[in-house]
Amino acid sequence: MENKEIKFLKLQQIIDAHEGKISHLIAILQESQAEYGYLPKEVLTYIATAMGISPATVLGVATFYAQFSLIPKGKYVIRVCDGTACHVRGSEPIMMGLRKELSLSADKPTSDDLMFTLETVSCLGACGLAPVVVADEEVHGQMTPDGILEVVKKLASAASEN
């Protein structure tokens, strides 16, 4: 049986690879998230127990950084830039269009089929391309509400083909 299918075994390997060093906690959390897609509480508790540190501390680190998520994320993460430049060039209609298409809201960022997660970012540093959307790690400049729906459709069909 693959290690990956048995909870915690892979996690212990990650911790062991870092020799259980507390100074490596962020890296351990990053790799664990890569493995599980997000950081469930039992994973945080396991890390704390195996490393002999307080669970509150692990939770503190995991909730401090925006890169960590304690709730499941979709297969594809769509990040709409809402920095000043993107905002004035029309990021809001893009966001509205995406939410409507995917039946999402500010309180519900992930679709029920765990396919898409919608996030806003404050600036991607690509203001010259405003408005910018990053979909599945790919940067799309000068986006429009219609253009992003095309991207979403492509991702959805790519997923169904696999």
Binding site: A56, T57, L59, G60
Partner: peptide, 10 residues
């Protein structure tokens, strides 16, 4: 030496 409390979020 216990660390019951910690900050959450930011």
């Amino acid at each position: 030496g216990i660390g019951v409390w910690d900050f959450k979020n930011r």
